[in-house]
Design a binder for these strands. Structure first.
Lengths: 143, 143
DNA sequence: ATAATATAGTTCATTTAGTGAACTATTCAT
DNA sequence: ATGAATAGTTCACTAAATGAACTATATTAT
């Protein structure tokens, strides 16, 4: 099979899955946060004391985009800013109690939705798939 | 391993890969079209005589979003509209010669970029991965 | 020690992409 | 022949991104 065809198939499938997961998050789970916002919130939850710059690097966007995103999460009371006393330029981000509850609730809901689809896969296939996906993410992040 | 952890890892990796491919398309290949626009253009190329409604279904967005997207591609001279003579409500979309050249060029460029990363994978792993990804896309599209 | 440079984050104007409701035009159904 | 359905557009609005200009700190070099 040609590499070109494989890449085309990859692109089509990846796009569909990405969009379907977003729709799931949007329609089935909550209407008061977007999937981009949830991804950022999730990152802050998993990386306590991270900065805007960290997020910009993780998601591959400019810092001004992160400021706007942070503001939206802050306005919803899900995160807070915390200035570093040693280096006053730096602002650490952390999730509020409300934010922690929110992430937990959303993950549970998302899990129970995705579970339906995962019944089509056996454990072995899931492991192999995630392993390859993480490997791809890793080599692409290194560049 | 817990399903929750697997889903979290999936989300993180998927997000990273999705964004890296977009950055690749944006930085390395062309500055005059977005990856969303390219995805739409690619769909029209592969589905000659498709309609706005087809695209809305494929990408899971509203028809008004498609109208706007189609306008952007039309303004760049990459696609054209073609009204159906039997059912005057329907407008078929097709790619112009310029659009065909553009897709071909972009795919070649994208391929040569992605090729670098794919050297880390053997054929077997790529096939298995794409097979699983397409299966996931399929079961999620069925719902 | 001070001047120049670098870093962290924000603001602002602009573009892209999406929503959903209201609309036009056409076709189908009873 | 009228009423419902379908295809696509327009409009006002929000989210997310860019990049340049900016503020406020830290660091480095002379």
């Amino acid at each position: 099979m040609q590499m070109k065809e494989l890449i085309e198939r990859y692109q089509t499938a990846m796009n569909q899955v990405y969009r379907r997961v977003n729709i799931l998050l949007k329609e089935k789970i909550h209407s008061d946060i977007t999937s981009d916002q949830f991804a950022t919130l999730h990152y802050i939850t998993k990386n306590e004391k991270c900065t805007s710059t960290d997020i910009a690097n993780e998601f591959g966007v400019g810092k001004s985009a992160v400021t706007a995103q942070i503001n939206r999460l802050f306005d919803k009371g899900l995160i807070e800013r915390d200035r570093d006393d040693n280096d006053r330029r730096v602002i650490y981000l952390h999730v509020t109690d409300k934010g922690i509850d929110f992430v937990e609730f959303t993950e549970k809901a998302l899990f129970s939705e995705l579970e339906k689809y995962l019944t089509n896969f056996d454990q072995e296939e899931i492991y192999t798939f995630i392993h390859s996906l993480e490997k791809l993410a890793k080599v692409m992040n290194e560049e």
